[in-house]
Design a protein around this nucleic acid. Sequence first.
DNA 1: CTGAAAGCGCTAACAG
DNA 2: CTGTTAGCGCTTTCAG
Lengths: 334, 334
Amino acid sequence: MRIEDVARLAGVSPITVSRTINKSDQVVEETRRAVQKAIDRLGYIPNRLAGSLASTRTRVIGLVISTLYSNIFAITVRGMTDTLLTAGYQLSLGVSNDLLEVESAHVRSFLGQRVDGVCLVGGIHDRLVRRALLQSGVPVVEINNLVSDPIDMCVGYSNEEASFAMVRHLANCGYRRIGLVTAPTENNDRSQARRAGYRRALAQLGLPFADSLIGTAPYTVAQGARAFASILSLNPDLDALFLTQDNAAAGAILEAKRRGVRVPGDIGIAGFDDADIGQEMVPALTTVRTHHYEMGATAARMLLRRIDGGAPPHPVVDVGFEIIPRGSTRPPPA
Amino acid sequence: MRIEDVARLAGVSPITVSRTINKSDQVVEETRRAVQKAIDRLGYIPNRLAGSLASTRTRVIGLVISTLYSNIFAITVRGMTDTLLTAGYQLSLGVSNDLLEVESAHVRSFLGQRVDGVCLVGGIHDRLVRRALLQSGVPVVEINNLVSDPIDMCVGYSNEEASFAMVRHLANCGYRRIGLVTAPTENNDRSQARRAGYRRALAQLGLPFADSLIGTAPYTVAQGARAFASILSLNPDLDALFLTQDNAAAGAILEAKRRGVRVPGDIGIAGFDDADIGQEMVPALTTVRTHHYEMGATAARMLLRRIDGGAPPHPVVDVGFEIIPRGSTRPPPA
DNA sequence: CTGAAAGCGCTAACAG
DNA sequence: CTGTTAGCGCTTTCAG
């Protein structure tokens, strides 16, 4: 079924049907109603492949997130879709599972589909993909970090400063032997920045460092529990652990409970992202709050503005972060 | 940049470039290498809008999941993509947030994009969408439930039997006053089935029922905690609560701890899905295990087979479920 | 406000 | 194994 079938039934030309669908204000009410009736009667669904090929616009934004295991991206995605839908744009979602080649495949696919904009997590991407993006001229926004050399635009927060601030907070609460758990650092600039902030804070505060104080745990409660167990066994004098993901931090709290380690008395635990689980833990989780809804909405707005031909006022937007002290760490001295 | 530019640089015709990209076995090695060199040199990315329009195949499967807040779909998505990628297909992901009209919009968009297959969660869909799907002739598979009247094909498990089995298990462990928390039932046949299984089990076992024993909590730990609190306040004699989502059940365990209610001694808690968090809880969560990876992989395989023109052997596949008893419920009598 | 002609970039079908 | 021809179904001009 084609636009022509609808046109015939409605007694108009194909272009009038097209206008009814896409720019209904250019069609007089009566014609429009007749066309709409024909569309409904036939159950006609326009072929967007053809439409986009002719118009060179898809009204689709491609987003590649790194994981579905952390529900934190749910909020960013809502921020983006809320903004995009209002403007008549759609989101196409890819999941990379933190693999650079999977991200590349998604981006290539997006470019092949001729999306009108692309959103990626972080600043580390395949060299060729970067080139392809630049060459294609599509607006690109990188999120979740402050990228030093963005492909195009960027909205996020400083993972290094956030990590630095949390470690300083822990030290202020009296913790001295502080461990760190992040997602793998390979091709992940957020994890790299969080480690850098941690190291810088330890150095500045004169706190002890050892390789055995650092561990790795992607996204899940179980992995956080294991990371906690392993770091504790290597560092019997550990007195705080900062896991830069709330699920993992929740896992650490649970593992502590299982071992009879008191939190925050024996060991303080801190997380990152202010996910919903943190507030519910017993004790509630001290964390870094970041602003994911705002970040998603801003990313969408920046893309839309660039699509409309304008340059955004700030190519790099910092949405900031806050330290949220809760019961999983000792209170700071008054 | 078009295929013609590549063809000119490589000294061949456009169709040879096309064949190099899509059916490389029909091109002799030497030609293929020359074409590939030209492609790489130019950074050419084929326009799939044009390609799919001409070939009437997109090699894209559309999937609409209900939420990003539960990470349980991550596993299903992996099962699907692992299978699809091998066959050269891609997944396009939509999130409905359990709203029928959002699901409809995604399906319409998929149909407009001319996806080669569609996968939906559950059996309740907009009437017009159902019609559009049928009319379009695209293969459709519904997952996460055993749908009585599938649009086309279905792979899932019986939510009613699973719920029934869990309630019987709880009764067998000596619990009498058993409450239930599900996601909202509106337009959600999984929740409806879980309630039906619960009611049927209570009736069959002669256990007491009251409206106040039933609560609602979508997907999050916090909502599970609140649902637990509210049902307990209405039913001081409550001795078990079955929350049909592991995050919510985890929230109930945490809320119990906060209130000094002992689990499983005072109250037994059970969940659904066997998400990673359940094993880590203290006590570990009794749950219903379902097989999400297998379900995703099977759904993908069924779609691919139908795309290849074959009828699948079974239009409805049951991947089953298992009751996993853990520490959050009392052991059954020996 | 509506229509006619031309073309978006690619691939199916057929030829050689 | 490679090329030619003829569209895929829509929208962009440009007229009226």
